[in-house]
Design a protein around this nucleic acid. Structure first.
Lengths: 234, 234
DNA sequence: TGTATTTTTTTTGTCGACACAAATTTTCGC
DNA sequence: GCGAAAATTTGTGTCGACAAAAAAAATACA
């Protein structure tokens, strides 16, 4: 609760209140500016964003629907915890959505989709070149979100976006571990995926997405394992 | 707005307001008691359920998050339309979720899961025996929801539940067409699925789910096609 | 000093009211 | 009569206030 905390006093368009609160909270949750388990005080938030509790509460309901916060009845809503015990279900779903969206993108994409995807890939490559771990996390998400959009299936897209957000939160936990040579590999893999999508080679796109997912899952697993050893060592 | 409309005046526990409104609206939407496109008047609803607009609005936000209603800025929220043009994306996602949840149920189910699944299947068989189309729709949903619960992956489960709801709405449109011999086939297919889950035969469960999904998709397609011909004939 | 009970405080859930935006109707000029 | 502008109506978005529920603090009692 530091930089994004103090916003403009009270000059916002009518009807944008809920959206505003939603965006602020969502960013802070995904960036771990609000740690998992942190209780969210409605009154405090209302004062911070200088608005009434009503739009705040509606934004919280929306976030609860996406699983980013948990509402305890008659008690404060808290930032959703990261369930390390069931990470395998997350990896499973993430891998499947990587595959399905990339497959369908190869099948259904239109000309301007590739423009967008390439733009996102350029941003990702820039983040990697600059060794900016936080930017890498964010731009990687946007790259795959662009592919999902090109897949033209809103059901897969919404689940995938949710999973990518969850992943962003997870990666953010370990972003200091990004100073190795792995990211460069991701850039190449992204390029291959783009090529297979453009060629409408569904099976190759599928295989590449599968590999890519395995890579990412493996890296996250390593980070967690490393982290756990440190914890035990204390 | 008939039977469920007039509820108790004002004796509900604190904190259950939103949930209550959510349940009422959700049922009415999925049963097509509220037709797609129908505007939902907050004040009217508030009077009907004899409560303030605040819990009503929060329930609407939640429904909007699940795609059951659409909120027009500064204008009334309306019951979500059924997108006939993009049904194939729905069928695609539905089929995949049938497969994935049945696969994982075969892999991850525990003893009492099968008890629940069999209970749901019994209810479905009863509905089929009694030729009760509406009950068939509802119990079929619960049967597959029970399998999804046994699959132990909340990400797949939530998407699947959403798709099943959408399907319930779709089937409800054509429930008068259920007076044929097809449902009996579904009962048998369900039994086969249960058997393969119990045997932990993942590949067979997958294959059966795939067939089952194809059956259902085909039936819905036929219903729509029949319906369209009728419309043209007018 | 430790524990059970009462009181206070804090925070949520709900309400009624008002302000603003869009749609609708009415009025006015031609 | 007909179209445009003004006035009215309708219904959402936001607010401040109050009541109920937990939690926290204070008190009583052993």
């Amino acid at each position: 609760m530091s930089e994004a905390a103090t916003r403009k006093p009270a000059e916002r368009k009518r009807g944008s209140g809920v959206q505003f609160v939603y965006n602020v909270l969502r960013d802070e949750i995904l960036d771990l500016a609000l740690a998992p388990g942190t209780p969210i005080d409605e009154i405090q938030l209302a004062q911070r964003l200088s608005m009434s509790r009503t739009p705040i509460r509606e934004a919280l309901v929306r976030l609860a629907g996406e699983g980013l916060v948990t509402t305890l009845p008659n008690r404060s809503t808290v930032v959703a915890n990261i369930d390390f015990l069931n990470l395998h279900t997350f990896f499973d779903a993430l891998t499947l959505m990587y595959r399905v969206t990339t497959r369908l993108a190869a099948l259904n994409h239109q000309a301007d989709d590739l423009v967008t995807i390439r733009a996102r890939q350029a941003e990702f490559a820039k983040a990697v070149a600059e060794q900016d771990a936080l930017a890498m996390i964010a731009t990687n998400r946007e790259f795959h979100a662009a592919i999902a959009a090109a897949a033209r299936n809103p059901y897969y897209e919404s689940l995938f976006l949710r999973l990518l957000d969850e992943g962003r939160r997870l990666l953010r936990l370990y972003y200091s571990s990004f100073n190795d040579q792995l990211p460069q590999r991701y850039v190449v893999e992204h390029e291959d995926m783009i090529a297979s999508i453009e060629a409408r080679d569904v099976e190759k796109a599928d295989a590449l997405a599968n590999e890519h997912a395995d890579q990412i899952v493996e890296q996250i697993r390593n980070m967690i394992a490393r982290d756990h050893r440190q914890k035990i060592a204390l």
